[in-house]
Design a protein around this nucleic acid. Structure first.
Lengths: 125, 125
DNA sequence: GCATTTTTACGCGAATCGCGTACATTTATT
DNA sequence: AATAAATGTACGCGATTCGCGTAAAAATGC
């Protein structure tokens, strides 16, 4: 396992070992060990590293070659509330059940289903 | 660190512990330990797991919600993915219909509804 | 109901981790 | 240039964690 990208990214940002170690909350010798290959970061550690470096774990592990991490932006921008009947949402939100995308038909039925259910609740009160 | 997505993905593919462990070249008890949280996979292991499961490490580590690795590689993970059966994801985003929050009960029933519907589709083919 | 497969649980020895420390190297200050 | 301060490298120690094998429980198939 070669984590040479840690060094590349850190240098690019002009951070010292101490500086990044402080951000990660670990000893600088620990972090240095990751870069030199002397040690391997835990999953938690590699996650935090990807966080502070604003990249993906897959990039750090050489699974992809694009260091950009779109989710950084998305995480902050995504609305907390999503209205399902809003057509415009369809292109931004993908709902899945058991890993399978919810079809338009299923979604339509979903909405009808909930509306009917709520209607009944109201009538019995 | 919670790797509950390992279990979800494996079940979705209907693989046994033995089957995936063989693919990974490790003991099944070792892999089982990852799923149960008894052990943590090494970086190499999590990489291989992402390979055989055809997803991203970031997804396995809950950094992104789109399980599709192809989308990540093509930088097309622009839309927000929400797995309705994922309890832990539910707390992050609130869904509404007609401006009213979707209750847990409504969601539960709908999931059962869609599953039954899909089940029938399969049987009649 | 029984056999087979799958899942869960855990002890053991070995491997690896995170840290502190000590030292080397580079950069900044005067 | 001399000195101080900051940065980077190397490694031993105690503690933690790992991967595996084994065994028993639970689920599945016939």
């Amino acid at each position: 396992m070669n984590l040479y990208r840690l060094y590349e990214l850190r240098k690019r940002k002009k951070w010292s070992l101490q500086y990044i170690a402080d951000q990660l909350g670990i000893a600088k010798s620990t972090y240095a060990g990751y870069e030199s290959g002397y040690r391997q970061p835990s999953l938690d550690a590699i996650k935090k590293i990807a966080d502070v470096m604003e990249t993906s774990v897959d990039y750090l592990l050489n699974r992809i070659d694009n260091p950009d991490f779109q989710a950084v932006k998305k995480r902050k921008e995504t609305e907390k509330w999503i209205e399902l009947t809003d057509e415009r949402m369809a292109s931004e939100v993908k709902l899945t059940i058991d890993g399978r995308t919810l079809s338009d038909e299923e979604k339509k039925q979903f909405i009808a289903f909930v509306r009917a259910r709520r209607q009944m609740e109201n009538e019995y009160r």
